[in-house]
């Protein structure tokens, strides 16, 4: 299997796992066990569009109970003899191998997945940012031998890219270090937010310069947050911003004691 595999370096390791929960796109080759007319193939493929029931295969890493998954897009890119080239946009946790198998059952001839390539996971796509191990190695070599980092900066992306698909909250400079220390985000620290913040969903918290501070779980939705002048807006889950980069504006017992 090849394709899009987002990798987080050092500090980014903490948040890269979050893309697991985002939408996926694959291109796969399905091999049918007998020839079938193209019209029939297209008909059955379209049948998989929308919500499907899927039982994880025997060799899987999750509980084998039937799950409902959404296939947002499914398209026959090409077909020849017993081979079908498919593009699938689906929910995370949809088994492509199982999809191929189930297609075979519906076609009545049997089928299995022959090849698979991931072309998208959330914000990461098969575009000019997609790099091979060789390109990474070259970029590092150029930087280490000449000191020029322009190639390196094209192959390694800022951590913020891995959170581009999430609802966002921008916070004031005065709130940054408290979050960096693990505090929850309170309403007075919010400078701006996107309209799609939902309660109990992941939200990305940034400085006004656009630096990722942390990932949190929103307590309220956008509409409610806008009306709040105090109280917790989001629970801090994964902190990326190191402590002490922004000045400390919050009061500790000691500092209030000396005042």
């Amino acid at each position: 299997m090849t394709g899009v595999l987002p990798v987080g370096l050092a500090e980014s390791t903490k948040v890269i796992g979050n893309v697991v929960h985002s939408v996926k796109e694959y291109v796969m080759v399905v091999q049918l066990h007998e020839n079938i007319e193209k019209e029939k193939i297209r008909e059955i493929v379209n049948y998989f569009k929308g919500q499907i029931y899927q039982k994880p295969p025997l060799r899987s890493s999750v509980k084998r109970t039937i799950r409902v998954k959404t296939i947002y897009e499914i398209e026959v890119l090409d077909s020849q003899d017993k081979y079908i080239l498919l593009r699938v946009l689906c929910d995370p946790g949809t088994y492509m191998r199982k999809l191929a198998h189930d297609m075979g059952l519906l076609l009545g001839v049997g089928a299995h997945m022959r090849e698979l390539r991931r072309t998208r996971t959330g914000p990461f796509r098969e575009d000019e940012t997609l790099v091979t191990l060789q390109e990474l190695n070259e970029a590092l070599y150029i930087w280490r031998t000449t000191g020029k980092d322009s190639y390196l900066r094209r192959t390694v992306l800022p951590v913020e890219v891995s959170t581009a698909h999430l609802p966002k909250i921008l916070i004031l400079d005065t709130a940054v270090d408290a979050i960096a220390h693990g505090a929850n985000l309170a309403a007075p620290g919010v400078a701006a937010l996107t309209k799609n913040v939902e309660a109990n969903k992941t939200v990305a918290i940034y400085t006004l310069k656009g630096e990722l501070v942390a990932l949190g779980k929103a307590i309220r939705n956008t509409e409610e947050i806008v009306k709040m002048d105090k109280g917790i807006v989001a629970k801090t889950k994964r902190v990326v911003m190191p402590r002490g980069v922004y000045p400390k504006y919050w009061k500790t017992k000691e500092s209030t004691g000396t005042q």
């Binding site: 299997m1 090849t2 394709g3 899009v4 595999l5 987002p6 990798v7 987080g8 370096l9 050092a10 500090e11 980014s12 890269i16 991931r118 990461f124 796509r125 098969e126 940012t129 997609l130 790099v131 091979t132 191990l133 990474l136 390196l152 192959t155 390694v156 992306l157 800022p158 951590v159 890219v161 891995s162 990722l212 990326v240």
Partner: peptide
């Protein structure tokens, strides 16, 4: 690099 992510073609 320390705050970097790679869109790797595995």
């Amino acid at each position: 690099i320390n705050f970097g992510v790679i869109n790797l073609d595995k």
